[in-house]
């Protein structure tokens, strides 16, 4: 109940203070440009519609997860810097409920950007009957990644001494996790395949490509989803265990 109150308040702050709509608008502009280029530009050399759907879906998931992480990374350290955390801590709400409420607010941004991505996926994939599959893949994989990144962002935010540190550390982590998705054909070697599998982001993105692009069945490469699921469980447990203790007025490792 307490968590629901906090989540409602956090969502109002996110969506009515202007940051949520602005981020969603910027996200829509980016998807518009990518979608238009994928649908018209010969130089991109997309041979099949599935490829353009895959590109837009991967960008939608990647940027959606990025925005979710940014909001989560700002959630506690940002309030601390703005001086609003003190009043929040004085309310008769448990710290676990505060963490859960902030997690829900961050995930509301993921839900919004995912809804924004739907018309782009529809327009690119309508001719090849791939829209339903793309939407479901984006929902499942994107939600897993967004949830784990939001939880990590909250943990970093609670432990960081300043908001800048929190945002920088979170973005660096996300960049480090996403960078391998740009490497060519990693899974062709056993070491490369292992690296893809243990990184939840590369594993999730690779799974999307296998199902959407190469036409594999959902169950054929299910093992790629182990690391995203483990990441969600591990970060959820970490947040549940340490969350109530690390939400405090002073940030930074070792601070009381």
């Amino acid at each position: 109940m307490n968590a629901r109150v906090i989540a409602g308040q956090e969502c109002r702050d996110l969506w009515l203070s202007g940051r949520g709509p602005v981020l969603t608008f910027a996200y829509a502009v980016l998807l518009s440009v990518v979608t238009y280029l994928a649908a018209t530009n010969q130089i991109l050399n997309f041979l099949e519609q599935r490829e353009s759907v895959n590109l837009v879906l991967q960008i939608a998931v990647a940027v959606g997860v990025l925005l979710t992480l940014v909001v989560a990374a700002d959630a506690i350290s940002g309030e601390r810097e703005r001086g609003t955390l003190e009043s929040l801590l004085l309310t008769p709400v448990s710290r676990g409920a505060i963490v859960l409420g902030k997690l829900v607010a961050a995930m509301s941004l993921w839900a919004a950007v995912f809804v924004v991505a739907l018309p782009y996926l529809w327009v690119l994939g309508k001719g090849v009957a791939v829209v339903g599959e793309a939407v479901l893949l984006g929902l499942v994989i994107g939600t897993l990644l967004a949830l784990s990144m939001a939880a990590i962002g909250l943990l970093i935010s609670a432990r960081s001494s300043t908001n800048k540190v929190s945002l920088a550390a979170s973005l660096f982590l996300l960049l480090a996790l996403f960078a391998p998705t740009q490497l060519p054909a990693m899974p062709t070697s056993s070491v490369g395949d292992l690296l893809v599998r243990i990184n939840p982001v590369t594993a999730g993105m690779h799974y999307i490509g296998l199902v959407l692009l190469k036409g594999h069945s959902w169950t054929q490469d299910l093992s790629y989803l182990i690391s995203p699921v483990v990441a969600v469980l591990a970060t959820a447990v970490a947040l549940a265990v340490t969350g109530p203790r690390i939400v405090r007025l002073t940030g930074g490792v070792g601070s009381g």
């Binding site: 969506w15 009515l16 203070s17 202007g18 709509p21 602005v22 969603t24 608008f25 829509a28 502009v29 998807l31 518009s32 440009v33 979608t35 238009y36 994928a38 649908a39 018209t40 530009n41 010969q42 997309f46 041979l47 099949e48 519609q49 353009s52 924004v116 018309p119 782009y120 529809w122 327009v123 690119l124 309508k126």
Partner: peptide, 29 residues
């Protein structure tokens, strides 16, 4: 495979609608 026919309206309309929503929220605030 390339066709701008369907993509252009979506690419234009979605940001416009969201832009209007952002404008409305800011104005309300």
């Amino acid at each position: 495979t390339l066709s701008a026919g369907g993509a252009l309206p979506i690419a234009v309309i979605v940001p416009i609608l969201l832009g209007l929503a952002v404008f409305a929220v800011r104005r309300r605030l």
